[in-house]
Write a protein that binds this DNA or RNA. Structure first.
Length: 497
RNA sequence: GGGCGCGUAGCUCAGCCGGUAGAGCAACUGGCUUUUAACCAGUAGGUCGACGGUUCGAUCCCGUCCGCGCUCACCA
């Protein structure tokens, strides 16, 4: 046991066993969800259909309000909270066990649904079944878990002890469901591609490295599913999407977690103009599904996610904010020095750094930044009539990048050339070698296609008004607990006295 | 990685100028059949994140380390 197990509660486990009661029975009870019981209870003035009937409720004991011969105990399940009334006179057989019941225990209660004198819906208990004894005490009943470290480390407590936490994850699930439903209605196929990649491609990021023993080869956890999904477009699947966990071995912040969820989709015969429409549809539909409105409040500001979103040209915005054109390398360098940016060797990366420093914060959004310099888009197709520009856009809300899309490059020779350029930079964020298999896939012919990626965690942040990505991840990345740290798990290896 | 801040009872938090610690909730004992954070009386619970230093004496001052938060950097 850990040091969370409380001696009083452990003693109660023994007392229950001594009475022949299993504190951890093998079977649960068939219970009606509390949400349905609350509807069925109605109010004292307008009683619902279930009032006076025998019902079973199962949940976690939130509180015990003990009046001696009467105990009120609100139970909570995934659908809500409903109190049970435990009366000595109706529970003569069970009553001696009353002192063995604690807050946070899981119980099933069968009884008659009704109301108290004050009008509170209540199940008046006839049978009480302990479903699982909590030997670790619950957090303080009014504040819940406040300490962020404890909240993230013990999400299994945070979810039921802190107000509104579970709701964020219900909304996250609705977001994913809405996306799946919409894309399926558009004829998309949901697919699963490898997580272990021999080459870390499809994005620029430092990868996690692992090793496969039987194949004796190093593998990378995927930084993006992009190149596999486009292979499927070559394979004729034409409209595919994947909701993919990606891994990037980089810093943590309120917008970054080393593993994060990305929606990527690819559509044959489409280009980035169609992707604009899909991105708008996804964001708007998810907002409506989750909140019933397109208006959201995020980081203290209001946003309306109603389609269509405005478009602004990357190069236009660059010129507006900096007073010169993006491809004037000398001025870019001077500007970077003015801004006290770290002046990197790659002039195009430097240009984009200047863009991010001067433009990104101004993109309150929702807004699409469209038409990027081709040099920072190694997988995107050039714009017809302007070879300096790639058909690419990014979607911004609150200065935060939510999505990224382009008309996919499908010329194998051009793709090979750009891969070789990337590899030559020796950048730790660039792939270490040319993905020849992907070049070969393009040699078989990929139809013109548009592709779109949307950061699901960030989308959920905006939809639920959470400032930090950690609050939309059930188990955000944390350092493992270790000796001397505060949340130490003291393993009780020695036999008990 | 840098800066700032935090770590005290199971939880939420006090603790002044250095003199080995308090409250509320939870727990335990007793009372109470209508509460909504029930109430009343009593009891128990602490290596003050870890290790070192200064000091007659350290929760408090100093150093190192661990963990967390915010922030900057990094992050197509």
């Amino acid at each position: 046991m850990t040091d969370q197990a409380h001696p009083d509660r452990l003693a109660k486990v023994e007392a229950l066993r001594a009475q022949g009661i299993d504190p951890y029975p093998a079977r649960g009870v068939a219970a009606t969800p509390i949400g349905e019981l609350l509807v069925g209870a109605g109010t004292p003035e307008a009683p619902g259909a279930l009032v006076g009937t025998r019902v079973t409720v199962a949940g976690r004991v939130q509180l015990l309000r003990d009046f001696g011969k009467l105990v009120f105990a609100p139970l909570q399940d995934r659908t809500g909270r409903l109190q049970v009334g435990l009366e000595r006179d109706k529970l003569t057989e069970w009553w001696p066990q009353r002192k063995l019941l604690d807050g946070a225990d899981l119980v099933g209660v069968t009884g008659t649904l009704g109301h108290t004198k004050k009008g509170e819906p209540t199940v008046w208990a006839e049978v009480v079944t302990l479903l699982a004894k909590a030997v670790a005490p619950p957090p303080e009943k009014w504040h819940g878990l406040v300490d962020k470290e404890l909240r993230y480390r013990r999400r299994y407590v945070d979810l039921w002890a802190s107000e509104g936490v579970a709701d964020v994850f219900v909304k996250r699930s609705k977001t994913l469901g809405t996306i799946r439903k919409y894309l399926e209605s558009e004829g998309y196929l949901e697919v699963e591609t490898p997580t272990l990649h021999p080459i870390a491609g499809g994005a620029a990021a430092r990868p996690f490295v692992t090793h496969h023993n039987a194949l004796d080869s190093d593998l990378y956890l995927r930084i993006a599913p992009e190149l596999y999904l486009k292979r499927l477009v070559v394979g004729g699947l034409e409209r595919v999407f994947e909701i993919s966990r990606n891994f990037r071995n980089e810093g943590l912040s309120v917008r970054h977690n080393p593993e994060f969820t990305m929606l990527e989709l690819y559509e044959a015969q489409a280009d980035y103009r169609r992707m604009l429409e899909i991105a708008e549809q996804i964001v708007e539909r998810c907002a409506l599904a989750v909140n019933g409105t397109t208006k959201v409040t995020f980081r203290g500001a209001e946003y309306d996610l109603k389609a269509p979103f405005p478009r602004v040209g990357y190069t236009d915005l660059f010129r507006e904010k900096n007073g010169f054109d993006f491809d004037d390398a000398a001025k870019v360098k001077r500007r970077a020095q003015e801004l006290e940016l770290h002046v990197v060797a790659d002039p195009w990366k430097l240009m984009n750094d200047v863009f991010e420093a001067t433009c990104e914060d101004t993109l309150s959004g929702p807004v699409f930044v469209v038409d990027y310099p081709v040099q920072i888009c190694p997988l995107a197709k050039q714009k017809p009539g302007d070879p300096r520009i790639a058909e690419r856009f990014e979607l911004y809300v609150a200065g935060m990048e939510l999505g990224n899309a382009f008309s996919e490059l499908n010329d194998p020779a051009e793709q090979q050339r750009r891969f070789e350029e990337q590899v030559a930079t020796k950048d730790p964020e660039a792939p270490g070698e040319v993905d020849w298999d992907y070049v070969q896939a393009l040699e078989y012919g990929m139809p013109p296609a548009g592709g779109l990626g949307i950061g699901i965690d960030r989308l959920v942040m905006v939809l639920t008004g959470q400032d930090s990505i950690r609050d939309v991840l059930l188990f955000p990345a944390m350092k493992p607990e270790s000796r001397g740290s505060r949340g130490e798990l003291e393993k009780n290896a020695a036999p008990k006295p």
